[in-house]
Design a protein around this nucleic acid. Structure first.
Lengths: 236, 236
DNA sequence: ATGTCTTTGTGAACGCGTGCACAAAGATGG
DNA sequence: CCATCTTTGTGCACGCGTTCACAAAGACAT
């Protein structure tokens, strides 16, 4: 069983650090807002504040892309928008399929952030035949049987999984088999994928549990946790 | 002299590394599955495979919680479930409010992973008066005007924001003002919060853009990117 | 009891990411 | 043209997280 390795062994010499890649969309969003207000240039300090990061970090991030700023002035907003878009691959069209059109799938289909960034929803798929043909976000839901044909015909390389946990692995296998090489997984499952396929997961439950941990710590700030508190269950 | 003084090992004290905290829910999920299959014990190797991580990492993670394993045997599943649950604060009840009952908010309200982990949806809130009273996931949607009263009455400390971007900051301010100290933000905005308030954000668009970056790299593996490709827009 | 075998727990090394602090670059004004 | 001022780009050091590799611990058989 090939466990899905989401991280490459080592960054190439020409590679942009993963942490930087993860922040580029953040910068892009802030820059887009500036662009809409017709702001011509922005300093690293201002942009960093808008994106919620440290200015030194932002400058270092940009330094991986090249020297796009002007000392004493700042960065040209339009130019930077283009450079980051190009680096992220957003200047091209990315057809996407969404599998599992429940509440979450419908929310994703309706999400405006997709189309505005070069992502085009090629199809909505669901296993429930009763849903077939119903319009969601202006698109007809199609039956999961059509998955392979749709992926091939539209050259879909990105799949979004919004199915129940039990169906996620099978859907993944079918997507990968049909040619999908990037998967965004909303199902609470660890997916196995062959090498060369990227998986990112978004897990609502995990995020909440992390918040709960910090919340608990905040609540128990002063008092000491009774460490000897052991449950009835003991190791055999 | 590169090697400085070892100020504090930071091991035995109360500090669990953030990276470890983020993985505990993952382990917990795998352990729960084992528990339901009545598996009594599990080795670090097996559990790591189920959680999709390295076994050495898992053992080190557990070492921050204490020595809960038995050498030569592995970990007692039930005992470990309890210890992780306690560490994450899941043995207590966490009332949660969800603000913004669109498709996404409805999806969150219906998500089973909430209730099963000690999270209880105290209320669903929306600014649209037309939604008020409608049942979503068995709960009536209530108007945003009731936010403060609901937070106070139910001692809500965790808020989930599923509103449009434009409303997110205002909702955040009101939540924080009413006593919420942890926020899970699904709106594509950088939130400003006072010290002591934790914010975690989940951003669909950003995840997709990161995938697009890697996808683009995969597509252009062999050929060289024309680096001199510059748009018409140039810095002033 | 003793030896063997399995698996944990962890010391140590390494690599990545972050932030400081400053020199270099360029704008701007006299 | 020169001085000054602003802001970038980056060398460097530090700390966190990951991984390796192995000694210690215990189970189990004889």
């Amino acid at each position: 069983m090939a466990t899905g390795r989401s991280h490459r062994p080592a960054t190439r010499s020409r590679g942009i650090p993963e942490a930087t890649v993860a922040r580029l969309p953040l910068y892009l969003r802030a820059l887009t807002a500036l662009s809409e207000r017709s702001v011509p240039t922005v300093s690293s300090e201002e942009l960093a504040a808008a994106a919620g990061v440290n200015s030194a970090k932002l400058r270092k991030d940009f330094s991986y892309l090249g020297s796009y700023g002007t000392r004493g002035v700042g960065y040209d907003v339009e130019y930077l928008v283009y450079q980051i878009s190009r680096e992220l691959g957003l200047t091209q069209d990315w057809p996407v399929v969404i599998v599992g059109i429940g509440n979450l799938g419908a929310a994703l289909a309706n999400y405006g952030g997709f189309a505005s960034r070069g992502f085009r929803v090629a199809a909505l798929l669901d296993a429930d035949a009763a849903l077939a043909g119903r319009l969601v976000a202006g698109l007809p839901v199609r039956h999961i049987d059509e998955l392979e044909a749709i992926v091939v015909d539209n050259q879909v390389s990105i799949g979004v999984i919004a199915t129940p946990a039990g169906a996620a692995q099978e859907v993944t296998d079918r997507l990968v088999n049909a040619g999908v090489t990037s998967i965004l997984n909303f199902a609470p499952t660890v997916l196995s994928v062959p090498d060369g396929v990227d998986v990112r997961k978004v897990d609502l439950s995990i995020e909440l549990q992390i918040l709960a941990f910090h919340e608990q710590r905040k609540a128990g700030e002063g008092r000491q946790e009774p460490d000897g508190d052991v449950p009835a269950v003991m190791p055999a």
